[in-house]
Nucleic acid binder design. Structure first.
Lengths: 218, 218
DNA sequence: ACTCTCGGATACAGGTCTGTATTACGATAC
DNA sequence: GTATCGTAATACAGACCTGTATCCGAGAGT
């Protein structure tokens, strides 16, 4: 019904071919995520990924150059989407600096709580391990965290300005510490969810960073 | 010539056979460490490990049941040795609680600085990634960190008692945070040594945890 | 309708890995 | 000196994986 209503005679459905391929690509990416999670990056075979998506290797190789390439694309897609979203919302949070800090901690906690976020974290771990040996992956990880750090550092700086205090350390070092706490808690929670519950996120962020941004000195 | 000089007729050199095998084992472990570091856990083959040690697969299989078993033994051996040493020394550190905190941060930093420690950390990462998918590895990692956490928590508790203050959060949560900071900094440093230098360790630990244990409130 | 194109399937060549089963050789014991 | 024992070497069977090269069939253009 939509076709006849289209006024343009030139491109009624011209994308069908491309669209179909794009869908294949997406199915491969989704399948790859599942396979990577259960086999690891090195442990996954192109064959299994293709099969999981309902294709053969032929489809894979006509869409991607290699397994690594697919992995990088997958990770960038997923991670940037999630973080961009969070960064956006952070800007417009109301309340005192400390409130905003707690809000941020809650969000980081929720990311781990949601299955989707936990998957993502595991993929990151995969990337990290590869990064320990492989320059290309190291740069990927570095550029991602560098961007993140800059972002957080910006917020830290702005916050100190807002409360009219001088940061006790360079903002990017404080940002590094916040990221470190996030990563470190996530790692420990992954390994031992009982002993390191996600509930630890908020009180710890509040305890360690809260006093830095309080308007009042105790 | 040495034989005739031996006074004991019963056990002149009875261990030679066993000792030799023990050496083979050690050589395999050392070789495995090197191979794991350049290929990863999954990426390493039994063949390569054996070859690196100057043996064939035959030697491997008559000493270990599987690659995973060897890995676990390797990691436990290396890690426990290092941490045990540090924990021991920590007990007998002089100075104020804050001094001891800084000393601890310096030690954690130095572990990453020394090549040996950085290797160890990479092996841990390998284990961690495996732990994301494999129950057995998860338990290994969990038990290790659990022990560590208990240890640190004990120190935290004692320190608060010493300065006569009540911990703002349960000691084991604070311990979790300290471990998290260590892990998180190490990870970031691994990926991007320029942006996250090891020099950040001491000031950050001091900033975040120092005020908790000061005898004087500001 | 008639080709042309290209996404995906299939077949193939070559390589690597694991684990076991058998063997050889050197050290111990008698 | 000879028999024994056990460590490590070797041979082998089976599985799996990667890339490439080739083929087929369904949209797209005319």
């Amino acid at each position: 019904m939509a076709e006849t209503a289209t006024p343009r005679p030139k491109t009624p459905k011209r994308l069908t071919r491309k669209e179909k391929q794009a869908e294949t690509r997406q199915r491969l990416l989704n399948a790859a995520e599942r396979v990577f999670l259960r086999r690891g990056l090195q442990g996954s075979s192109v064959e299994e990924i293709a099969a999981e998506a309902g294709f053969t290797r032929g489809a894979f190789y006509s869409n991607f150059k290699s397994k690594d390439e697919l992995f990088v694309e997958l990770l960038q897609d997923r991670v940037y989407r999630q973080y961009a979203e969070m960064a956006e919302q952070a800007q417009e949070q109301p309340g005192t600096p400390r409130d905003r800090l707690r809000w941020g901690a809650e969000r980081l906690r929720d990311v781990q709580k949601r299955e989707e976020g936990s998957w993502l974290f595991r993929l990151w771990l995969e990337c990290l391990t590869q990064a320990a040996r492989d320059e290309e992956f190291r740069e990927l990880a570095a550029s991602f965290w560098s961007g993140n750090r800059t972002l957080v550092a910006g917020q830290v700086k702005a916050t100190f300005k807002e409360v009219g205090r001088k940061p006790p350390l360079p903002p990017d070092q404080i940002a590094t510490a916040m990221i470190a706490l996030d990563v470190g808690l996530a790692v420990q929670h992954l390994v031992d969810p009982e002993e390191v519950p996600l509930g630890a996120y908020v009180p710890l962020f509040d305890l360690l960073f809260g006093s830095l941004v309080d308007t009042e000195e105790p």
